[in-house]
Structures are given as C-alpha cells and as structure tokens.
C-alpha cells in the first residue's frame, strides 16, 4: 500500500520534495505521507486528493489533462502515452522511443526534477542504461518473432549518445558549474561564489558639475517610526532577559 497524491491545483509539498501541476500524480510511502505537514496543508486547501492504494506499476496512470499546461520538453510530447513499441518501425526508431520513455519516467516524472544534480544525473544514466537495454532487447525479440531476420546487435556507444541527448533535452539548463539546483538554493550558491570587484570606482579627481534636487520634509513620521522601533527592540530585549 502506498499513498497516491493527485493534484487538483498547482502546489508544492516541500517536505516531500514535490512540485505538482494540475492533473499530475505522485506516489509516496504511507509513513512519509502521514508525517508530512505540508501534505496536510495542501489537502486542507483542497489542492490535492489523497488515496491509499496499491500501485499498479505496469500501467502508467493518466489523469484528466489540465485546461492549461506548461509546454513540455520536446522529448515528452513525442513520447506515446502508452509504452507501445511499433513492430514495423526501423530499429533506430524503436531504440529512441524506448530511451525517451525511460527518460520521461525516470527523469521528467521523478519528484523534484529541478533539484537533480550532475551526480544524480550520472547515477540515473547508469540506472537507465540497464532498463533501456532490457526494454530494447524485449522489443527486438518481439520484432524478430514477427519478422524472420535476426535482430541487429545493439551499439553501446550509440545508445549512450541517445540517452545523453534525451537526458539533456529533458533536464533544465545547468546553472554555474554544470549543477542544476532548486530555485530556493540558487541564491545561497551564488553567494558562496568568488567575486571580483574592481577598486577605485569613485575617482575623487573626476571633475563634475552636478547639482542634485533637494527636498526637505518634516521628520515626524520618521521620528515616530524610529521611536516605535526602539521601543520594540527594548521590549524584546526585556523579554529575552526575563526568559
């Protein structure tokens, strides 16, 4: 038994690392779902529906498409909804479609795709290679049983290139040193980056004839704000001391 989360309104469930669009579904372990505060919140807001049921791993469930949907990467739009391998198609086409399907399942539909790092990508590539090899072998065996000629041997280098291409097309462009990070982490990462700042920007010898617009207004509101802020700080310090 797992928990199926079906999205009714676009929402984010941070403690499950999920970012769902309307019509999308996600599966999580029951224990995780029960302990998720963010999930409870979005359920209460009516943004998702939650069911506890057995997951049918063979059948990819598709829910009613949302009325508006973000443009999907090309690789996804080309992918058939059901994993049907066209028997009569040439061998190269079969491999590409299988690769696309696996990439879509493993990468695009994986939770928190944006947070995939280069390392995870590499791991995924390894994992996908096995899945693809098995799927291609099965497809070719099927093709061979319907057409008498022997299936051509798989070219490992060609397959790797197809996988790389499909993953690159499916993932967002890397930021900085090739690492794709979640938007919330981007700022921190940039702040750690080394920074070159020129010196001597303000040249005191630069001749300038500038008269700036000047305006004077009562400082009542500013004084009041300063006073209120001072009082607030004093109260806070007092409360901290009392504790």
């Amino acid at each position: 038994m797992e928990t199926q989360i079906i999205c009714c309104e676009p929402c984010e469930i941070p403690d499950l690392s999920l970012n769902l669009h309307r019509g999308e579904e996600a599966w999580v372990a029951n224990v995780l779902a029960k302990s998720s505060k963010d999930l409870k919140r979005v359920v209460a807001m009516g943004h998702v529906r939650v069911y506890q049921r057995m997951r049918d791993k063979k059948k990819a469930r598709r829910h009613a498409p949302p009325s508006y949907q973000r443009l999907k990467p090309q690789v996804r739009t080309q992918t058939p909804a059901a994993p049907v391998v066209p028997v009569a198609a040439p061998e190269q086409v079969i491999v590409e479609k299988i690769v696309e399907r696996v990439v879509v399942e493993k990468v695009i539909e994986a939770p928190n795709t944006e947070a995939l790092t280069a390392q995870i990508k590499r791991d995924l590539l390894g994992e996908m290679a096995g899945t693809i090899e098995a799927a291609v072998a099965a497809a070719m065996a099927l093709q061979a049983s319907q057409a008498p000629q022997a299936p051509p041997a798989l070219d490992a280098a060609a397959m790797a290139a197809i996988v790389q291409q499909a993953v690159a097309a499916a993932l967002p462009a890397p930021v900085g040193g090739g690492v794709v990070v979640a938007p919330s982490r981007r700022r921190e990462d940039t702040e750690e980056a080394p920074l070159y700042l020129p010196t001597g920007i303000v040249d005191k010898n630069t001749k300038a004839e500038i008269s700036v617009q000047s305006e004077s207004k009562g400082s009542g509101e500013l004084d009041e704000a300063t006073k209120l802020l001072r009082e607030m700080k004093r109260r806070k310090t007092q409360t901290d001391k009392d504790k």
Partner: peptide, 28 residues
C-alpha cells in the same frame, strides 16, 4: 538624511549621455 529642519532627500535621475568635449561651453 536627517537635518534639524526635517528629513532632506536628494535625488538624481539615474541616466547619462556622452557628448564630444566641444559642447562643454554650451553646457556651462
């Protein structure tokens, strides 16, 4: 900035334009 008379604000439009030096007299 605060002044005894109140809060004084100074403003300049954040824009510039470069011209050849011969226009200096006219600008003055």
């Amino acid at each position: 900035r605060r002044q005894p008379s109140g809060v004084v604000t100074k403003r300049i439009r954040d824009a510039f334009l470069d011209l050849p030096a011969e226009h200096r007299r006219m600008l003055k």
